[in-house]
Amino acid sequence: MTGPGSEGLQLRRAVCPGSFDPITNGHLDIIGRASRLYDVVHVAVMINQSKKGLFEIDERIELIREVTAEFGNVQVESFHGLLVDFCKQRDIPAIVKGLRAVSDFDYELQMAQMNIGLSGVETLFVPTNPTYSFLSSSLVKEVAAWGGDVSHLVPGPVLAALGDRLRRK
């Protein structure tokens, strides 16, 4: 926020973390909803060196930037380590997580309690749009690898990148 009288105003910031390998319409729905609630939404792409993703981190970042550009307040970058450290380094007080099912809640609640205990960073749970309640990146990759139609599950640029990647494998 800039302009007369804006001195001292603090931007409301949140982070949407994940591996996003690849980003799905379910992820995009959560990020879009967070972008309406916060001034700045950071999308933090997890680096897990013990896992080999379908897409490299830089490719994921570019795809996410492309499909979130319409929101205008989303920043995308990678991180390695504790999410609360990412938040502390950027003065982000809130983590936004989508919940698909009760099984997600059990795990995410433990993580939220750990995060607030470690650093005071709050976690907000957003119920997933029922249209995407079954959706995961792993499922998208598996269906696409077997030639299934995932066009309704991922944004257009992701569908094209997924097709290109799977044809090269």
Rank of each mutant, 00 (worst) to 15 (best):
K141S: 05
T68W: 04
M114P: 00
G148L: 09
S151A: 13
F134C: 02
R167K: 15
R65L: 09
M114I: 14
L166E: 09
R165H: 13
D149M: 08
E142Q: 15
V154T: 05
G53T: 07
V154C: 05
H42D: 12
V143R: 09
D21N: 11
R100F: 01
V84G: 04
R36W: 05
G117R: 14
P93M: 08
L124F: 15
E66Y: 00
M46S: 12
L11M: 14
A34W: 01
T123K: 06
L109K: 15
L82Q: 09
G156V: 12
N115Y: 01
G81N: 09
P93A: 09
K169C: 12
L124Y: 14
A69T: 09
D21E: 07
M114C: 08
S133V: 12
I47S: 06
F134K: 03
V67E: 01
G32Q: 07
I64A: 05
D29Y: 08
V43D: 00
L124I: 15
K51R: 14
N115G: 05
E66V: 10
Q75W: 09
E56Q: 14
E142H: 12
K97Y: 02
S6C: 13
T2N: 12
K88C: 10
A14P: 05
M114G: 03
V143D: 09
S78Q: 12
V154N: 04
G163K: 12
G156M: 09
I61A: 10
E66N: 07
V96T: 07
L83M: 10
M46T: 14
T68Y: 04
R13C: 06
S103I: 03
F20V: 03
S151V: 02
A160P: 00
P17H: 06
G117E: 10
D29C: 03
L82G: 09
L82S: 08
E7G: 10
K169G: 15
V126F: 14
I57N: 04
G156D: 14
R60L: 08
F71D: 04
S103E: 12
T128F: 00
G53E: 06
G72H: 11
H80S: 14
V140P: 00
L124H: 13
Y107E: 05
G156K: 13
A161R: 11
D39Q: 08
D39V: 05
A145P: 00
V40D: 03
R12S: 14
A44G: 15
S133I: 08
P155W: 04
K52S: 13
S133F: 05
I61N: 08
V40G: 05
S35Q: 07
F125M: 11
L99R: 00
D164V: 07
K97H: 08
V150I: 14
V154Q: 01
I92W: 04
V74G: 03
D106A: 11
V41T: 08
Q110D: 14
S136C: 10
G72F: 10
V43K: 01
L9K: 12
S50H: 13
V150T: 11
V102Q: 13
A160M: 11
R33L: 06
D58I: 02
V158R: 01
G26T: 00
P4I: 11
G163L: 05
A161P: 02
S19L: 07
K141E: 06
M114D: 03
K97P: 01
I64K: 03
A144F: 05
G26S: 03
F86Q: 02
F55Q: 02
D149K: 07
I47H: 07
A112T: 07
K169Y: 13
V121N: 02
R60Y: 04
